[in-house]
């Protein structure tokens, strides 16, 4: 032992640590979660792939459009970033699930909750660190991609367009990732939670495409409107449907759903045995 321990010896005498004990707070948990998220390779991989997809697909579509016909029929040039963001958000969802379910999978959660018995604080710290990391990266990447696209294709998007295509998309993708984190906390199983999230993302659209019956037209329309790819499209003003949510509405919807899922995750984590 390198700490100066006193030899007290006698049974009954209790030990007191020479290192002063102080109360802990959310800031400590945030520092800890930041260390955790930056020290595993899955973070580097998922976020790296996300950036590569967003930049790569954004530039590819922009150069294809520029080579063929730069007339976008009234669409903002920023909407060319859509496909990269759509695929990139799958990476974010994977990371969101892994951030919490890998702790359950490895048993690390027991070590964590022994070191911090207030479970709500652990989950809150995870959620905050993850959300801020994804939001920052997505917003910066979409801004860079947008600037490059404007440079390649030309056009002058309005300030509102810029704001929604960067901060709006950043918030949307981060909220989607947070939903995945909540599902990971509820399911506690990486593969299961990732499958659920991919299903949530793609299934409504796929089901709607194959809904041919006339009597189901309304259902089909709703599935199209509220499917996640279409909602991301709404943020770019380039939705598949003409009706349904507009402007910032997709963001409020995903945030509402995420809030409900997070509330469930908090409640269950508090009561369940780990």
């Amino acid at each position: 032992m390198t700490t100066p321990y006193q030899q007290q010896g006698a049974p009954g005498a209790s030990y007191t640590s020479p290192i002063p004990v102080r109360n802990t707070h959310l800031g400590d948990a945030l520092a800890s979660e930041w260390t955790k998220i930056r020290s595993v390779r899955s973070t580097m991989w998922t976020l790296g792939v996300m950036i590569v997809l967003m930049v790569g697909l954004g530039l590819l579509t922009a150069s294809l459009v520029a080579a063929a016909d730069p007339d976008l029929e009234g669409q903002s040039v920023l909407s060319l970033g859509f496909s990269g963001v759509l695929l990139g958000s799958i990476c974010v969802m994977t990371l969101g699930v892994l951030t919490i379910s890998s702790e359950f999978g490895t048993g690390m959660i027991r070590t964590t909750l022994t070191a911090c018995p207030s479970r709500g604080r652990v989950l809150a710290a995870k959620a905050i660190v993850f959300f801020l990391l994804v939001f920052t990266l997505t917003t910066v990447t979409t801004a860079i991609v947008g600037a490059l696209q404007v440079g390649i294709v030309g056009g002058e998007p309005s300030g509102e367009d810029w704001f929604r295509a960067t901060v709006g998309v950043g918030l949307y993708v981060a909220a989607l990732g947070l939903l995945a984190l909540a599902v990971g906390a509820l399911i506690r199983h990486s593969a299961g939670a990732i499958t659920i999230m991919i299903g949530v993302m793609l299934l409504p659209l796929v089901v709607a495409i194959f809904m041919f019956s006339e009597s189901l037209r309304d259902v089909q329309e709703a599935l199209f409107q509220y499917s996640i790819p279409n909602q991301i499209g709404v943020l770019y003003d380039s939705a598949v449907t003409t009706s349904g949510p507009t402007g910032w509405q997709p963001l409020w919807i995903v945030m509402g759903v995420t809030a409900v899922a997070m509330a469930g995750a908090f409640a269950l984590l508090r009561t369940r045995d780990v």
Partner: peptide, 12 residues
Amino acid sequence: NHLLSLAQLSGI
């Protein structure tokens, strides 16, 4: 890093 994350959690 494993130990560091645990230490940070309790302000060590």
